[in-house]
Nucleic acid binder design. Structure first.
Lengths: 248, 248
DNA sequence: CCGCGGGTTTGATCTGCATCAAGGCCGACA
DNA sequence: TGTCGGCCTTGATGCAGATCAAACCCGCGG
């Protein structure tokens, strides 16, 4: 099959990761059409549960707008967040029938869903989708392992700084450290959610956020609005290697 | 292309995960031959470093015999193990030029390596290899997230019990709980390595192992040889859901 | 205008694990 | 056979973060 002009085409929902490398506009058009056919949108209100751990999950999806969390809960109620889904992040595992975690909308949320069965078929007929998914999954794995270091070895203050740095980075699309200018963002999580993410209690989170503010690392307007005037200063608090870039 | 008799063929290194689903013996033979061509073995002594984080990594590999660990280290020396590689586990990420973690042999180790470039080519021409890798990576991601719960929310005693349960399970290939009979195995890790895995200090590990022994949850012969007479009793100590199976 | 409730802060106290320190065990090697 | 060096255990003490307990802030509905 001859390939024609090279260009990137993406199906219409913004940053959705289920899009193709630049291959061949014609072949892509085909696949995109098939994607469109199995795709639908779902909206959730802040606080709503998207799916419970163990439930049958017959779709895969990507976040269009809003924020969702993945959490695990122990019988006695101890909770650990194991993932934070921002726009363009992907949820769901082809080949797995049930959800492995609770997925919850922490803000109003729109997801772009693909019915799983046809998605899997599409996947096996178009190899680069599997490769794209593999790449994304490897990224998630790296992030999870980075988080293991945080949970196992960082102090409360370092944990808070790391979380703030990650959110700041994600919000502003800076991949590495950016020295210039202030970064301003709204915390998408309550203190309790931050605690569940960091393996702390909400009181400790509150105290450490106050401490970072007192020490001039961050500024706060209200409880959620954060201003970082000197990102490097924040990075120093994370305990991470600062010179080698973020993901070594 | 016509498919012939269905059967599973595997290239000759034991449990290596880079093997094929049952497809077609003839097609497989082809691919296996290509795999053989790019494959080689490497041996390491206990304690040797296989590769340092950040180094160029021009192969992917699977563990044939022995045990290796993945660790991350902070500048000040705090260490967190982020993966434990037992026979048949896979290391390396297609599409990534450098290693993301230190890989160390904790016992004598034999790995079956594939040169990365040709492996990637093979991967793009035989889609089910990418799918197999995706599946394995998803499994690793699940394990990493399970571990995040452990690091963030479990007590020292629960952490030890969980580690013992995982090793016992891996050693004996039981997928879920098995009530019957004693399980006997050797700890493949020193107390310090266990500590690095669990986000504890070696002293705490030692104390909690002693405590589990004192409380009759495990028996010890020497320092490394563990006997679990009642696996359920051990599972109760892990804090995990015991009824729903292991991976919910 | 008040009262209510969810999220947050702050203080006082407690505790599980880290830290510091001393020995014990045991295999290797002279 | 002694002793040296890894690894492990055990004890004493300290401290970061958990827990318990108030009170504050602020948007919202009455």
């Amino acid at each position: 099959m001859a390939h024609h002009d090279l260009q990137t085409v993406s199906h219409e929902c913004g940053d959705c990761p289920i899009r193709h490398r630049a291959v061949c506009a014609r072949c892509e058009a085909d696949e995109l059409q098939r994607l469109e056919q199995i795709k639908y949108y779902r909206s959730f209100q802040a606080g709503q549960t998207v799916i419970w751990s163990g439930d049958r999950m017959d779709f895969v999806a990507s976040v269009v707008t809003g924020i969702a969390t993945l959490t695990q809960t122990m019988e006695d109620g101890r909770r650990q967040m194991v993932g934070l889904l921002l726009p363009s992040d992907f949820v769901g595992r082809p080949g797995r029938p049930t959800a492995a975690y609770d997925v919850t909308a922490t803000t109003d949320l729109v997801m772009c869903c693909f019915r799983k069965k046809p998605f899997e078929e599409l996947m096996s007929s178009t190899p680069h989708i599997a490769q794209r998914l593999l790449e994304m999954t490897l990224d998630e794995l790296d992030a999870a392992r980075e988080w293991m270091l945080l949970l196992g070895r960082k102090t409360a203050r370092e944990k808070i700084a790391s979380l703030l740095a990650i959110i700041a980075r994600r919000d502003t699309h800076l991949k590495l450290k950016s020295a210039k200018g202030s970064i301003v963002f709204d915390l998408p999580l309550t203190r309790e959610e931050m605690a569940d993410y960091l393996g702390l209690t909400l009181e400790t989170v509150s105290r450490q956020v106050s401490a970072l503010k007192r020490d001039g690392v961050i500024e706060l307007e209200g409880k959620r609005h954060v201003i970082v005037r000197d990102f490097d200063k924040l990075l120093e608090e994370t305990g991470d290697d600062t010179d080698g870039g973020y993901l070594v």
